[in-house]
Amino acid sequence: MNRYSVFLLLGANLGEREAMLVKATQLISERIAPVTAQSHLYETAPWGVIDQPAFLNQVIKIETTLSPEEVLAQTLDIEKQLGRERRLRWGARVIDIDMLYFDNVVLETEYLHLPHPRLHQRRFTLVPLAEIAPDFIHPVLHKTNQQLLSECTDESQVSVCE
């Protein structure tokens, strides 16, 4: 059975943000696959809709035998279990789990786009991603995460939490 490296971005900007990221990581480990790497926590400015509280973000890596669709179904279920309500695109949320990469899979369906179509445009994604996987090569852009970060024009504030 094949094992796939999957990078997930966790984010929260409502309620107990850090506790929510810890709980999401725990549920991902239990229901999808153990976490094999995780970045520091980063406090980040909101993106898209800027009139909302700052986010805490973190990138985790898992090694799974599940398919991309199965991972998506599980992450959506975990978001729902943790109280996520989808109201406004890019709006405030108690938890957000985005699949950034699923190994080197390139996939575009109605519900899933891999790699994540905007990851190279967002510092809040690239900073923690480059921390744990600087040399991972984007399967479409053919650049490392570190290169994508150095070329990113997003000037949003991203600060490591001590």
Rank of each mutant, 00 (worst) to 15 (best):
M1R: 07
R3M: 10
F7E: 02
L8V: 02
N13G: 08
N13H: 07
G15T: 08
E16D: 14
E16R: 12
R17P: 06
E18M: 08
V22A: 06
V22P: 00
V22W: 11
Q26K: 14
L27E: 12
L27F: 08
I28M: 01
E30F: 04
E30I: 01
P34E: 07
V35A: 00
T36H: 03
A37F: 09
H40I: 00
L41T: 02
Y42G: 08
Y42A: 05
Y42E: 08
A45T: 15
A45R: 13
W47M: 11
V49A: 14
V49K: 15
I50R: 12
P53F: 03
F55A: 03
L56M: 13
L56Y: 15
K61N: 13
I62P: 12
T64L: 09
T65M: 15
L66W: 05
S67D: 10
S67Y: 14
E70R: 11
V71A: 01
T75A: 02
L76M: 15
L82C: 06
L82T: 05
G83M: 13
R84W: 06
R86D: 09
L88H: 05
R89T: 01
A92S: 10
V94M: 01
I97R: 03
M99A: 04
F102K: 07
F102L: 06
L107Q: 14
E108I: 03
T109G: 09
E110R: 11
L114C: 08
P117D: 09
Q121H: 08
Q121M: 07
R122F: 05
L126K: 09
L126H: 06
L129D: 01
L129K: 05
E131F: 04
E131D: 10
I132L: 12
P134K: 05
P139H: 07
L141C: 04
H142N: 12
K143N: 04
L149C: 08
C152V: 12
C152A: 12
C152T: 08
E155N: 15
S156Y: 02
Q157M: 15
Q157H: 11
E162F: 14
E162C: 15
